[in-house]
Simulated assay, not measured.
Amino acid sequence: MNRGYGGGPVVRLNNLTRSFEQGGVRIDVLRGIDLTIAPGEIVALLGPSGSGKSTMLQAVGLLEGGFGGDIAIAGEQASKMAADERTRLRREHLGFVYQFHHLLPDFNAKENVILPQLVKGTPREAATERAEHLLGQLGLAQRLDHRPSQLSGGEQQRVAVARALANRPSLVLADEPTGNLDEATSDKVLAQFLELVRGEGSAALVATHNERLASRMDRVVRLHEGHLN
């Protein structure tokens, strides 16, 4: 079970806004988002391409500034934090899975899962044991020493899932995590992702445009014209 955070919502968004200027025109992407995610809850963020799902995940992931409103992660108000404090909060509580795996090409599967743990300060022996456990849970016990170029697309994405969970995050943010895979592989990877996240006790916010995949999660919220409903 995840032990990174034990009380209250993992995420609380209050009146989250984000606007861009394009060609002298103001574009309001997020128009006052309110959302609370409980520990261990898996929430699907559903919406068509261009609806602002990635922008919202960037906000929750503390990956860039320019957002209005309040963002609380694991009980800490992140909106006004300095950059180093936001980095600490990300490292301690958040894991990320993207549509493209973004694995380090010169490192094998196990090393890609070990490295983020070493950055956090986990001893190498414990990090290695954790990497082997997660990759084994995802059916990759025989692929530990293979580099990303030697793995299939589904295998690469499963390594990315293991990497996201390596530091026992309170919350996993996944942006179209199976969007680059064929339907059969997508279904298999998503099932393994959900099983592992639930087994680890982490919460997750998963952006997708796929109604069928969203229906397999605990709750679905829909982003439409900058509002959640």
Score class of each variant (00 low, 15 high):
1 M>I: 02
153 G>H: 11
6 G>T: 13
118 L>M: 13
46 L>C: 08
202 S>I: 06
151 L>M: 15
207 A>Q: 07
142 Q>Y: 03
60 V>Y: 12
198 R>A: 10
96 F>I: 10
190 L>N: 12
14 N>C: 12
64 E>V: 09
146 H>V: 02
212 R>W: 04
79 S>K: 00
167 N>Y: 12
157 Q>E: 14
40 G>K: 08
34 D>N: 15
140 L>G: 07
207 A>G: 01
62 L>C: 14
180 N>Q: 08
113 V>R: 03
21 E>T: 14
92 E>N: 13
181 L>W: 06
11 V>F: 05
171 L>W: 00
104 L>W: 05
166 A>H: 06
4 G>Q: 05
172 V>G: 01
36 T>F: 02
17 T>R: 11
186 S>T: 10
166 A>P: 06
52 G>I: 01
77 Q>D: 15
224 H>S: 11
169 P>Y: 11
119 V>Y: 14
175 D>Y: 03
101 H>Q: 09
33 I>N: 02
179 G>R: 02
53 K>V: 07
191 A>T: 13
229 N>P: 04
100 F>Y: 14
39 P>M: 07
90 R>H: 12
130 R>D: 08
215 S>Q: 15
8 G>V: 14
215 S>F: 10
127 A>L: 02
4 G>F: 03
76 E>S: 11
204 A>F: 07
102 H>G: 03
89 L>W: 08
167 N>G: 09
153 G>D: 06
146 H>E: 05
202 S>C: 08
12 R>Q: 15
31 R>Y: 03
82 A>V: 14
49 S>D: 08
118 L>H: 09
139 G>N: 01
223 L>N: 07
195 E>Y: 00
138 L>I: 02
110 K>Y: 00
166 A>Q: 07
25 V>I: 15
199 G>C: 13
166 A>M: 05
126 A>P: 04
180 N>I: 01
32 G>S: 10
15 N>K: 14
1 M>L: 07
81 M>N: 03
181 L>Q: 09
65 G>V: 01
112 N>E: 11
111 E>S: 11
31 R>L: 09
